[in-house]
Amino acid sequence: MKPAEGSTVIGKSVIIRGELSGSEDLFMDGEIEGTITLTDSRLTVGPNARIHADINVQDVIVFGTIEGNVKATGRLELRQSASVTGDIQAGRLSIEESASLRGRVELTGASTVTPVARPVSS
């Protein structure tokens, strides 16, 4: 799998402990313990990634492993090889067959129903 063009890439041999934040798309294929904050960007969790962190992003695509809570203001995609242990809060959620999810899910998208005006018949 190739990272999206223009993404910052963190390779599979890199280990980060602490807080990771930024304002550009990130392809993470290494290991991180701590927090990830990319409120206006997309995080792609590569197939080799092992993330032990709370995540706050706009969009996230998961191929690897996450242990921690995930908050995505946009879309969260769990691909076939994904494994997530933790609570999820997202605007939209997509889960492929064979993906693993253990935790609570809260969808924050437009779930309110707008009443439709109906004509009154006499």
Rank of each mutant, 00 (worst) to 15 (best):
S7L: 03
T8G: 08
I10S: 07
I10F: 11
G11R: 07
K12F: 11
K12E: 13
K12L: 06
S13Q: 15
V14E: 11
V14H: 11
V14C: 14
I16T: 14
I16H: 10
I16R: 10
I16W: 11
I16F: 14
R17Y: 09
E19C: 06
E19R: 14
L20P: 01
S21E: 10
G22K: 09
G22P: 02
G22R: 01
S23K: 13
S23Q: 15
D25Q: 01
D25M: 08
L26P: 03
L26T: 02
F27Q: 04
D29M: 08
G30H: 04
E31C: 09
E31N: 09
E31M: 10
E31Y: 08
I32D: 07
I32S: 12
E33R: 14
G34W: 01
G34P: 05
T35E: 09
I36C: 00
T37I: 01
T37R: 10
T37E: 11
T39H: 12
T39I: 14
D40T: 13
D40N: 11
D40S: 13
S41V: 05
R42S: 13
L43D: 09
T44W: 00
V45N: 07
G46L: 04
G46K: 00
G46D: 01
G46E: 05
N48C: 08
N48W: 02
N48Q: 14
A49E: 12
A49D: 08
R50E: 01
I51P: 10
I51S: 09
I51F: 04
H52E: 13
H52Q: 12
H52Y: 11
D54T: 11
N56E: 13
Q58S: 11
Q58W: 05
D59M: 07
V60L: 09
V60W: 00
I61R: 00
V62F: 04
F63I: 05
F63P: 02
F63V: 00
G64W: 01
G64T: 08
G64C: 07
T65L: 10
I66F: 09
I66D: 02
I66V: 15
G68Q: 05
V70N: 03
K71V: 15
T73C: 10
G74V: 13
G74N: 14
G74H: 03
L76A: 06
E77S: 14
E77C: 00
L78K: 03
L78Y: 06
L78P: 00
R79M: 06
R79W: 02
R79Y: 09
R79E: 09
Q80W: 02
Q80S: 12
S81V: 03
S81K: 04
S81Y: 00
S81G: 05
A82N: 03
A82P: 07
A82S: 07
S83C: 15
S83F: 11
V84Y: 04
V84E: 03
V84A: 04
G86A: 05
G86P: 07
G86S: 12
D87M: 10
D87Y: 13
D87N: 14
Q89T: 14
Q89K: 14
